[in-house]
Design a protein around this nucleic acid. Sequence first.
DNA 1: ATGGCAATCAGAATTATTTTCATTTTAATT
DNA 2: AATTAAAATGAAAATAATTCTGATTGCCAT
Lengths: 132, 132
Amino acid sequence: MGKKEIKDAGLKVTLPRLQILEFLTNNKGKHFAAEDLYDEMKSADHDIGLATIYRVLNQFETAGLVCKHQFENTQAVYELDTGEHHDHMVDVNTGKVIEFFDSELENLQVQIAENHGFELIDHKMVLYVKKK
Amino acid sequence: MGKKEIKDAGLKVTLPRLQILEFLTNNKGKHFAAEDLYDEMKSADHDIGLATIYRVLNQFETAGLVCKHQFENTQAVYELDTGEHHDHMVDVNTGKVIEFFDSELENLQVQIAENHGFELIDHKMVLYVKKK
DNA sequence: ATGGCAATCAGAATTATTTTCATTTTAATT
DNA sequence: AATTAAAATGAAAATAATTCTGATTGCCAT
């Protein structure tokens, strides 16, 4: 149970926060829009307002508990932050999102930033692909 | 002047389109939100409605004349598509956007997609950096 | 228990963008 | 050059995603 994580984030332990965090924990690696979560919570008889979902997700994001992605769709999606960095590959035909990690790529990015006189803080990368 | 490009895109050559395209051509490599362009046009005594700006930018995008980027800000930004692919680096302190191209990176991306059984169609990458 | 402050709810507000529809402009044709 | 149909425009309304507001509720240290 996520009580500790919530407390460590400087937030009060409330039912909505626990329920949202629990759901994301049980669905590692999957992406959910705020409204998806709203529906999921409703299905589980957890009546959490949409505004609360958005608020909690933002708080969780700043706390490093979840990460937020803005793919091509207009709605942002969220997933549990497992601490293991990864990038995304989107199948343009199916819309399916594949997560991957490539250390050579990670190194190259640091290198490129350095070549321009910068320090790499973070990056975002999405590959749009299709089955060959 | 951009009459030819507009015609080739299957669009009628109108004043708003010419003025927007001319402005972007004179500002290669710079990014503008729809509202920036709206203001720019107004400053130049070209009274183009904001709806038209959005409409024309979308048409130009599908025609491959401009490309659209969604960085961290909420507003999308547009720039002239010079045909030369490049990625972006954002200075997290100044907000400044630096364009760059790295062929090693491009190759690696193709490679990664292939390793997962996919063909790379396109990609989007933003490096968040700061001065060292 | 209870008092204070943070969290929640529901709905209103905001922001970016798109759509609608009446009017104007373009470009093809006479 | 005048005619005309189709496409483009402007202004305002509509939409979509997200954030804010104000009243109420819930958490927790005393």
